[in-house]
């Protein structure tokens, strides 16, 4: 049981077009893994397929050594939570009500919350620092608080694996760090396996144990940040000419100064000049 998630020959598509042809990957248990790559490379698609929000065309997904095809929906929901990108909830819902939905896979009948359910909901609100806003309506929260309450809902699901699709979108720097610190804290305290899609390469490098870089629906490279976050990877996956330095705070590699390789606009401008 070294790996939480394994995919074998996983092929995924949208609207009839294959985006990810054949993915073989292994996600380490109890670690933070970030999927990085350019827009449209298929990173969100992979996350959604593993979180079974979209159906895969063929291949298999194995979580905790069991093929998910053999599991009931609710059984999977007890092992793996997924937070889609910028989710929206009815604005009049209170934080506590939303977090309570995380107990859905465990409930039966009309869904009266048990004492255990209530304790878990309070715990989830507590860890995410949302307990003081428990009765506030979602519409009245700031962006950072909203993201934390969604994470609290995923926590109430009490799963060993949490998948997150760009959990820092639309947040300012401090709130981005807050969300990632929270995830790191959960990973260290609860040994939760965290897999996320992140756009910010430097944050991904800083907070992840492993990086999975994708290019055109395939895994370009996979490993620790020091092996993935390289000049070659930036050039191949992002068409970026970047300088990699070591972050003095975290000791992780980061991309400091960067530019487009073959800047098409420069070429166009040069042509204009000649004309």
């Amino acid at each position: 049981m070294e790996n939480s998630i394994v995919t074998r020959d996983l092929s995924i598509g949208y609207d009839g077009t294959i985006i990810v042809p054949s993915l073989n990957s292994e996600i380490h248990r109890g670690k933070i893994t970030s999927i990085i790559g350019a827009n449209g490379c298929g990173k969100s698609t992979v996350l959604k397929a593993v979180g079974r929000i979209i159906k895969s065309e063929s291949g298999c997904i194995i979580i905790n050594d069991t093929d998910i095809k053999t599991l009931k929906n609710k059984e999977i929901a007890k092992q793996m939570a997924i937070l889609p990108q910028s989710p929206t909830a009815p604005g009049t819902l209170t934080c506590r009500e939303l977090v309570a939905y995380g107990r859905f896979p465990y409930q039966k009948g009309f869904g009266k919350l048990s004492k255990e359910d209530k304790e878990i909901i309070d715990w989830a609100l507590e860890v995410t620092n949302m307990i003081e806003f428990r009765d506030r309506e979602i519409a009245c929260l700031s962006g950072g608080q909203r993201q934390r309450v969604w994470i609290a809902m995923a926590l109430a699901q009490q799963t060993g694996i949490i998948l997150l699709d760009e959990p820092t979108t639309y947040l300012d720097l401090a709130h981005q760090l807050e969300v990632l610190e929270l995830l790191k804290h959960l990973n260290e305290g609860q040994h939760t396996t965290i897999v996320m899609v992140l756009h910010d390469l430097n944050l991904a490098s800083r907070y992840s144990d492993y990086l999975l870089a994708m290019y055109d629906g395939k895994i370009d490279r996979y490993g620790e940040p020091k092996d993935v976050m390289t000049k070659e990877m930036l050039a191949h996956c992002f068409r970026i000419d970047g300088d990699i330095v070591t972050d003095s705070r975290s000791g992780k590699p980061m991309c400091l100064s960067f530019d487009l390789i073959d800047n098409r606009f420069d070429v166009a401008l040069a042509k204009d000049d000649r004309g």
């Binding site: 079974r52 929906n73 059984e75 909830a89 859905f104 896979p105 699901q157």
Partner: peptide
């Protein structure tokens, strides 16, 4: 709350 959220919760 959302189709994707519901799927994630096992619906």
């Amino acid at each position: 709350v959302g189709y994707d959220i519901a799927r994630g919760l096992g619906v």
